[in-house]
Design a protein around this nucleic acid. Structure first.
Length: 264
DNA sequence: ATGACGCCCCATGGGCGA
């Protein structure tokens, strides 16, 4: 069973790339981020025609997440609990049949957080840290359940120096600074494992390259898209791949898919 | 020091992303 995540950077602008990848990679579950459309604008029929159930948590122009699954999902929920005033569409969750059991998948679009501000207390950075605290609370609750858990998405966190081309230049950015890394560790320390780090772990394996400045051509990337797995999910993880070749396609997203293959 | 690229929208340039 293949469970994947991809920040698609507008699902409507990316349909040729998305359909091509779905038909080739055939994931069983795909979490999409930055669909940049309301629910009604999601190309549901085209995706369903490829054999997927479509669950959407959309938003006009910005953010927006979706969850595609070959099997019909149960218990689909949208929005990260913990702040009723948060109107940004960044979280979707479902329980998916897997083998003889089920797996719970959360699709995450964690806030970027820039600019940080001189004293690291800008509104956007506070929102990022608050969101990470809410994710920790929610993950702790989900980890009390029996089924394997995978929290897949664009975390906007560079976990290690080796996950960016120029750590000194990135240090201090909202994606790579002490408070961000501490919050990310706190989530992992609940009992979640970075699938790529555990099964591959090489430096320089990026999932995002900026459109600007020839970042892709010069391999100036960062690894910010992650699959965090509970222990029982990790026990079933066979391999992880970052589909870097997708960045060379026509009209690519600035992110590429990350895929975990599980023995469910 | 700035902009660069690409996406969005009751657009025609500004906001946003990372």
């Amino acid at each position: 069973m293949k469970i994947a995540s991809w920040n698609i950077n507008s699902v409507k602008a990316r349909m040729p790339a998305l359909t091509e990848w779905l038909e080739a990679a055939k994931p069983d579950v795909l979490c999409l981020q930055e669909i940049k459309t309301v629910d009604e604008g999601f190309p549901r029929l085209e995706i369903e025609a490829l054999g997927y159930h479509v669950s959407v948590h959309g938003q006009k122009s910005y953010n927006g997440v979706a969850l595609l699954s070959r099997q019909s999902p149960d218990e689909v929920t949208i929005g990260l609990p913990g702040d009723d005033g948060d109107d940004q569409a960044r979280y979707i969750e479902a329980v998916i049949p897997a083998g003889r059991g089920v797996v719970r998948v959360g699709g995450i679009y964690l806030p970027n957080g820039n600019p940080v501000g001189e004293t690291a207390d800008s509104e956007k950075y506070r929102y990022k840290l608050d969101w990470m605290a809410r994710l920790k609370t929610h993950a702790a609750k989900l980890l009390t359940h029996e089924e394997p858990l995978i929290l897949a998405g664009d975390y906007n966190v560079i976990p290690r120096a080796g996950d960016c081309h120029d750590p000194k230049a990135w240090w201090g950015d909202a994606l790579y600074r002490p408070e961000t890394l501490a919050a990310f560790r706190a989530i992992k320390h609940l009992g979640l494992y970075d699938a790529f780090e555990m099964l591959d772990g090489r430096d320089g394996q990026y999932s995002f390259w900026d459109y600007q400045g020839g970042a892709w051509q010069n391999n100036l990337g960062i690894r910010i898209d992650h699959l965090l797995c509970s222990a029982s999910a990790m026990d079933r993880l066979v391999d992880v791949s970052i589909d870097k070749f997708v960045r060379d396609g026509a009209k690519p997203s600035d992110h590429v898919p990350i895929v975990g293959r599980f023995d469910f």
